[in-house]
């Protein structure tokens, strides 16, 4: 396993970039990004219609 300090720094940089809604590409791993999901309505199984609030979500796309 890599040095804990290195891992911590990598994670800190990644988190800081994601908080700024940045997109980070790491070779050999993949790409981290933030996507906005609009509010949307959907129907539950019991029939009620729920409108989900919007959200900014972290998305990871693995490298192929």
């Amino acid at each position: 396993m890599t040095d804990k300090n290195t891992e911590s720094e990598i994670a800190t940089i990644l988190a800081a970039q994601l908080k700024e809604h940045g997109r980070i590409q790491i070779n050999g791993l993949g790409t981290f990004s933030v996507e906005h999901r609009k509010q949307e309505q959907h129907q539950e199984k019991d029939g009620r219609i729920i409108m989900k609030p919007p959200a900014d979500l972290i998305v990871f796309t693995p490298e192929k």
Partner: peptide, 9 residues
């Protein structure tokens, strides 16, 4: 933010 119920079951 919580989901809003638009119509009842």
């Amino acid at each position: 933010l919580s989901p809003i119920e638009v119509s009842p079951p």
